Deep mutational scan, measured.
Amino acid sequence: MAAGGDHGSPDSYRSPLASRYASPEMCFVFSDRYKFRTWRQLWLWLAEAEQTLGLPITDEQIQEMKSNLENIDFKMAAEEEKRLRHDVMAHVHTFGHCCPKAAGIIHLGATSCYVGDNTDLIILRNALDLLLPKLARVISRLADFAKERASLPTLGFTHFQPAQLTTVGKRCCLWIQDLCMDLQNLKRVRDDLRFRGVKGTTGTQASFLQLFEGDDHKVEQLDKMVTEKAGFKRAFIITGQTYTRKVDIEVLSVLASLGASVHKICTDIRLLANLKEMEEPFEKQQIGSSAMPYKRNPMRSERCCSLARHLMTLVMDPLQTASVQWFERTLDDSANRRICLAEAFLTADTILNTLQNISEGLVVYPKVIERRIRQELPFMATENIIMAMVKAGGSRQDCHEKIRVLSQQAASVVKQEGGDNDLIERIQVDAYFSPIHSQLDHLLDPSSFTGRASQQVQRFLEEEVYPLLKPYESVMKVKAELCL
């Protein structure tokens, strides 16, 4: 049975990233139509530049190519590739079939990587351009969430054990800070992308030097003109047959890092959902379990974690691919890159769409948070109580021993009897502590235990987050809708 299948058929496997999760716009960027249309555009740009620099290419040939950029006979191309065992030459023939007058000058002087690699770089750039505003929107939604809850005390956790208090907004800023680093890295790697350009079979530009009869300047002009037509500021000066596969490492490393950030955020949300302090959106008709109707599973956060793990592992592909590119190139890269580049971007696209949807509907339960604080705060307040007693004339050592005994009794009630923490009640009825009984409410005010959390939130948002989001103001209103 021949390899390949009808990918629109229910009898043929289709990647869930495309069929179930990723956005239509990201799927289109990695589609065959987008790819092969870009090949034709690159052939047109090459012909236009070659004509401008004096090669015998007519206006009629150029116009014929322009008129057929979208006229792609995919069936013919597939048949040609089956016959020739070469995808680029299959599309040269297919393009030439609908451009008979231009057929002889299509791909003039070029090698397969002229269309293959340059198209990949265009796709990487455009895919990054799709991700950047999506990530900015996630940051914006979380920034709104953090600002609104900047002063809401909550129990902090280290080692997932109760620690000092923080605020809900401050905790959210930990998430935002990681995503801001990801946004900066995505922008950097996007701006650092260079075009492969017009380089020939081993990167020496020998074929173009021959076409222009040894004119170095025209060869350099050709490279520059096509690079500018493709919208790049610069091209690699040095290439082998391909652009260095280190570029793929750079791009997928940034995406993998984004995956790590999203995994951490969504894990926190899942843990908070278990504590009943916070939940992701839950639709009115949504079913959490087929057997347990009360369940409210954090399905979206779980999906993000599941896909983020996949995204983090994909960076190993370009690392290994770059390491086995012998001399000017081997074909070890080809099949692998067809999979890992598309999957990385479709996965990143999915987790950003999902995280935006989550961040637009996060639900906080202040009463649950308050109750958990009441359970733990008495123990945390013991040092403040000791200091207040010393100020009232008591002995630190005597007070410490009193607190120690009462704390152990209260802990026994919590752990052995399943009761509430009654340390404060014990202190309130103990005559030894009568000098500070009137101060206990103040000493137990949760806001006095959150330090500068709310001020940190305000400063972080104003100095770091809002300036970073400013270039994306025009796209901030787009909502994230999930079908599944």
Results as ranks from 00 to 15, higher is better:
Arg33Asn: 08
Glu213Ser: 12
Asp216Cys: 09
Thr239Val: 08
Ala127Phe: 05
Leu443Ser: 08
Ile287Ala: 07
Tyr472Leu: 15
Val262Pro: 01
Arg303Leu: 03
Pro318Cys: 08
Gly361His: 12
Met76Leu: 12
Tyr472His: 11
Met312Trp: 02
Lys367Pro: 06
Ser359Asn: 10
His86Gln: 06
Asp223Asn: 08
Asp192Gly: 11
Ser31Glu: 08
Glu80Tyr: 09
Gln241Trp: 00
Ser359Phe: 14
Leu271Pro: 00
Arg337Ile: 06
Gly4Thr: 15
Leu17Glu: 00
Ala103His: 11
Leu355Met: 15
Thr201Asn: 02
Met476Thr: 15
Ser9Tyr: 15
Asp332Leu: 00
Met225Cys: 13
Gln325Tyr: 05
Pro471Phe: 15
Leu209Asn: 07
Pro446Asn: 05
Ile351Tyr: 04
Tyr243Arg: 00
Arg83Glu: 12
Arg40Asp: 00
Gly96Trp: 07
Arg83Ile: 10
Phe449Arg: 05
Ala392Lys: 14
Gly203Lys: 08
Asp59Ile: 09
Ala392Gly: 10
Arg459Trp: 08
Thr204Met: 02
Asp59Cys: 13
His310Val: 11
Ala348Gln: 04
Thr244Val: 00
Ser112Met: 00
Val115Tyr: 00
Lys246Val: 02
Leu142Glu: 05
Arg371Val: 04
Leu272Cys: 07
Gly200Pro: 00
Asp268Gly: 08
Tyr21Asn: 01
Glu463Gly: 11
Leu482Phe: 14
Gln409Gly: 10
Ser438Arg: 11
Met476Glu: 15
Arg300Asp: 04
Val254Asp: 08
Cys180Gln: 08
Thr201Pro: 08
Asp191Ala: 08
Gln221Phe: 13
Phe212Cys: 07
Thr242Leu: 06
Phe236Cys: 05
Leu142Met: 13
Asp182His: 03
Asp178Asn: 06
Lys75His: 13
Lys477Thr: 11
Glu343Lys: 09
Tyr472Asn: 11
Ala77Arg: 01
Asp6Gln: 02
Ser67Asp: 13
Phe433Trp: 06
Ala453Lys: 03
Pro378Ser: 06
Leu406Thr: 07
Phe36His: 15
Thr313Pro: 13
Ile385Gly: 04
Met225Glu: 11
Gln177Leu: 12
Ser301Ala: 08
Pro467Ala: 10
Asn68Met: 10
Ile351Gln: 07
Leu55Trp: 07
His310Asp: 03
Cys180Trp: 02
Arg83Pro: 09
Ala235Phe: 13
Thr267Phe: 08
Ser447Asp: 12
Asn297Trp: 02
Leu346Asp: 00
His91Val: 04
Tyr114Thr: 04
Leu252Val: 14
Ile237Glu: 07
Gln241Leu: 05
Asp87Ile: 03
Arg404Gln: 08
Ala150Val: 06
Thr202Ser: 13
Gln320Arg: 06
Val219Gly: 03
Arg234Tyr: 10
Leu440Met: 07
Asn297Asp: 01
Arg374Met: 14
Asn185Met: 09
Val226Leu: 15
Leu53Glu: 03
His263Leu: 07
Ala49Met: 01
Tyr466Phe: 12
Cys340Met: 13
Glu481Asn: 15
